[in-house]
Each structure stands twice: as C-alpha cells, then as structure tokens.
Amino acid sequence: MTTPRTSAAPSPPLTWSLRGRGPLDVPVEADSPPEPPESGLVGGSGRGVRVCVIDSGVERDHPVVGPVAGAWRVVKDEAGVRVEETGEGDVCGHGTACAGIIRRTAPECELFSVRVLGERFSGSGEVLLAGIRWAVRQRFDVVNLSLSTTHVRFTEELRKLADEAYFQRTMIVSSAHNTRVESFPWRFSSVISVGSHQEDDPGLHLYNPTPPVEFFAPGQKVKVAWLGGTEIRTSGNSFATPFITGLCARVLSAQPRLTPFQLKNVLYLSAANVRIRGGP
C-alpha cells in the first residue's frame, strides 16, 4: 500500500464549510469499485495492507498464521494503562485463531497483534479501549476486533474512536456479541459489524438487510489455528469477523484508496444475497 494511507500526516484543521475554495481546490484521487458481479469484487491478495488483531495475542511462527510483523500488549498496573512491545505470543488461542483466518483470506497482508486479554486486570473496558485507541493512532488499514464491551460508560469514547478511524480510513471490523447483548463498538455505523451465518460455504458472506449487524460470514465449526502450531474447530461471531477483515484487506490491496464507505459498498455488492436490479 502506498504511503498516504499509512503515514502519520498531521491532521488538517476541521472543515466546516468550503469557503474561498472551489471544486478544483479539493481534488480527490479515487479508485472505483470493480463492476459487479463477476469481475472479482474482492480481488487482491492483501499485499501491502496492514491488519491489526486486537485480542489475546497471536502465536509466533504458527504455520497457519505465518509472520507477525509486530506485537504489543496493553498493560494496566498501579502506574496506569500503557501499550508496550511484547515477545509473548497468545495466552489463549483466540487471537491466533482470528489471525489464521485473516491469513487464509488475505495471504499477503501484514499482520500485527495487540493483546488486550490474558494479563491480570485485562478484559476490562479500559484495557480494550486503550488497545483500540493505540491501533487507531497507528493508522492500521484494517483492525480486527472479535471482542466488545458491555460497559456503557465507555460507549462515547469508543464512538469517537470509531469515527476517528472511519475518517482516517482505518476500517474497524467488529464482532457482534454472540448472545442477545448490547455491546460496543459493533453497534456503530462507522465500523463494519459481523455475525455468523450457518452455511457450509467457507467463502460466503451475506449482507443483513436489517442491521445493525451489517454482514454475516462463516462462523460455524470453522477450522482455526490454535496454540502449539495446531488447529481446532470452533464456532461463533469471533471467527466470522476475521473473514470479513481478510476480505477488506484483499479489496484494499487492489484498490488502496477506497474509503470505508466504498469498502462497505464493495462488501455489499459482492454479498451473495444482494441482487442488482437488471443483473443476472
């Protein structure tokens, strides 16, 4: 991916209206989405796209996951909450499972890990928030979040972060809760929210005509990478989400300048249940 998406350029001042400037002053170099439906809407290999997995860590040198380009953990102690580099892999298997699905879907993407679970005090909304904030500020292209928080007091801060990500073109792909629970940030329109479908097709994704869960992806008895270089089968929205993350990485590697709303549109147009009027 070219530098404009990933470099930490200083933020321009907020634009409230277009005064003293015309259309020629605000040119936009864009990529058009491919023509639906046969031309490979989700083409690309993920090459050059930086994907961050916020979870329980990712096991190093797992044969299914491949290289992890960088790993950090969120630590909370008496001194507060901070993010530091870590050599420790995964303490549970869940993050490795997500990373493996992303690798399988977008083989050439660059994978990064931020561990927010597995430490003492981890799993708190505060630690999750710190991990998301850090990932957004690193301007990753795609962030996989197979986690959510039910703590309402973090909602506003999460919403701001999700908006910040959206406007800087960091696509947060966020798992819906597995039970009928209100949690965040998957409820926000600025992220891509994902739930499971029950079909056997491992490459099938669907658009949900009645959001807030916007897309469904394979999440039932999915073969996933697990600790010790092994694989197991597991079910849940957690594992549908990285499939959509992988699709985003593939799309962005072919068309790096797509905005989050265009990216959503590509997923929408390529969903198996979306029929274009007049199309085949």
Partner: peptide, 18 residues
C-alpha cells in the same frame, strides 16, 4: 486469565471448541 475459561471470563463471550 488463561486458557479458554480465561478468555470467556475476560471477554464476556461464550465459546465452543472441538
């Protein structure tokens, strides 16, 4: 904080593994 029970307790999500 470790293993599958640890992940479930920390994340608040159910999990099924085979």
């Amino acid at each position: 904080g470790r293993g599958i029970a640890g992940w479930v307790a920390a994340s608040g999500e159910p999990m099924v593994v085979d």
